Structures are given as C-alpha cells and as structure tokens.
Simulated assay, not measured.
Amino acid sequence: MTRLLSPAVYRRMIAFELQRMRKAADITQQEAAEKLGCSRVRINHFESMRNLPRSADVEVLLPYYGAAERVEEFRDVIAMLKDVPHASDLARLAEVPRGFDIYLGLEQGAHSIRSYEAMIFPGLLQTPEYAGALMRGHDDDLPEEEAHRRTELRLARQQVLARQGTPLELTTVIDESVLRRRIGDARIMREQFDHLLEMSARNNITVRILGADVGVHPALHGPFTLMDFAIPGDPGVVYLEDRLGGRYYEDADEIDEYIGVMEHLLARSLEESESRRLLRQAREELIR
C-alpha cells in the first residue's frame, strides 16, 4: 500500500473508523469486546489510538459492525504500520512535552491547521534564532545541546509547509501583543518579522493580526490549534498546551466550540494586507 499520510494519521483513521462503524451499528464497546473475546478496555484502546488492532481483530470486528467489505483495506493499513514506531520520527530529535509526540505525527499529516497565538509567533513560522531564544528563556537550566536539538526539531517541523504535492494549509491569528513582546535582541526580532512577511506571501499560509483594540474576545483563555485531516467524516482535533504537556479534544461538540471561536477571531482580526502593514510597522519600530 502506498503511504499518502503520516503514520499517526493512518492510526487516527483506524481508531476513528472503528469507533464510527461500531456506533453506526448500535453496538457498545462491551458487546464488541464479548464478540472479540477481550476486555472492553482493549476496544477502547483501539478507538483512542493507544493500541493498533491486529489483522485478526478487524477480521472479527468489521463484519460484526456490518463492514466486511473494508477488512482488506484495514489489513493493508495495519500491515503497513506494523513496523512503524508509534511515535513520530521527529520526536527522536529532542525531548518533547507529554503528548507532543502524537501531535508531531498528526501535524505532519494534517491537511490544514488553524491556530490562535496569544504569546509567541507560531512554531511553524519561527526563525532558528527566535526559536533558540525561546528554548533558552523557557528553561534557564536547559543544557545548550538540548536547546539546539529542540530548535532543530522546531525547524524540521516546518518542512510540512513545503510538503510535496499537498503542502499544509496554515491559517494563524496572532495577537498584536506578540509583535511587541521581545524575544532575544532587536536583530532577532527584525529577522523574525522579515521571515513572517516572506512566509505570509505563500499561497498556503494566511497570517492575520488580532488588534489590541479588539478588547474582550472568546479566546482570552489562551492559544489553541485546530487540525483537520483528509479523512472523510473526521471532525479533526483541538490541541492545547501548557508548561507540563498537551491535551486533545476530539468530540465533535468540543471541536465545533473551537471552530466557532476561530471564526470569531478571523471576523475581528485585520485582513491579510492590513496585517502585513502592521507587521512592517512593528519591524520599523525596532530600528528607531
């Protein structure tokens, strides 16, 4: 089978489809477990990406769900993933927060990403020196070698923006306060502005600035990321991160809530041309 998506997205597809087909057949996890001769927890692990089912498992479950015609498709995907590590290859470049290894794989296979950035410029659009200054400032005790590895990881992630055939579609809303928050010295900030202006000219990248005069808005709880995948019926994922790690929201109602917030932010943020004007203005202020 030809690989078109990242392994993490294929794993997600299997988990999502197993859950969708079971629910469509009005079968509980306990009933599925009894049919397979296992615990309900094992079925839950199949449906949450924790464990990949065996071919023998789907040969029993799919006919039970009324989807016998998809057994061969699932066997092919499982065989392809059998020798692929669960964690993203990128996660081997440096230590990552809890849950971020899954994020890396999903990011590499996402069709589109929409994000709100309240504190820093988005990782996919950072320069090496801006990223490095962040890594070192985030942890004063971080060894220089590890800071370098984490910076290299961040840069490696950016290759998805130039992915062959289907580059990632990135839309990001950046709070105006990020433009005024100095990370590193003035030279690092100027280079970051130049890079952001250059990247925002690409067809697959949209940068919008949420002006300081907007005041109260529904994303004052902080930054978030919405990921969409090329999987029919998959509502996507919302990812939130704090200092200790990340967490995901995958229920359709939860995702719809964040989609509504993103639409609100886009409606109130500056248009692309005005956003670029403000970026240039902020850059010039560093020279004065």
Rank of each mutant, 00 (worst) to 15 (best):
R22G: 04
E107N: 13
A201H: 08
E17K: 15
L124W: 02
S55D: 03
V216F: 03
L62P: 05
S115Q: 13
A24R: 15
P223Q: 07
E250S: 12
Q30H: 07
D185C: 05
L210S: 07
R20M: 12
S88G: 04
G260E: 11
H264L: 02
M135E: 15
T2Y: 04
G37D: 13
R180E: 14
M1R: 10
M119W: 05
A147N: 12
S200E: 13
F46A: 06
E73V: 12
L168R: 05
A24L: 15
G233N: 06
T2Q: 11
D175Y: 07
A133K: 11
A118S: 15
E271F: 01
Y65L: 11
V237F: 06
A147I: 13
H195F: 14
L18A: 03
F74W: 12
R288I: 03
Y258Q: 09
A162M: 07
Q19M: 15
L161N: 03
F74I: 07
L286H: 04
H195L: 06
V58E: 06
R283D: 03
M199W: 05
E69K: 12
P63S: 10
Y239K: 07
E69H: 12
D228V: 01
A131C: 13
P223E: 09
A79E: 14
L168F: 01
D213A: 08
D141L: 15
E285C: 01
L5M: 13
A8R: 14
F100Y: 15
S6A: 14
L170P: 00
S6C: 03
R276P: 01
E271G: 15
S6N: 11
V173L: 11
L142T: 01
Q108T: 04
Q192R: 08
H264C: 03
H138R: 06
S48Y: 05
M21N: 06
I205S: 10
A67S: 04
R180P: 02
Q108L: 09
S177K: 06
D228H: 09
R180G: 02
E72K: 15
P143G: 05
S273C: 06
V216A: 09
V77Y: 03
N44Q: 14
N44G: 15
R11F: 08
K35H: 08
V173D: 10
A24P: 00
M119Y: 10
R136A: 05
V216G: 00
D256F: 00
L90I: 06
A156V: 02
R70E: 11
Y65I: 10
R149C: 08
G99H: 04
Y239A: 10
E117Q: 13
I231C: 02
P128R: 11
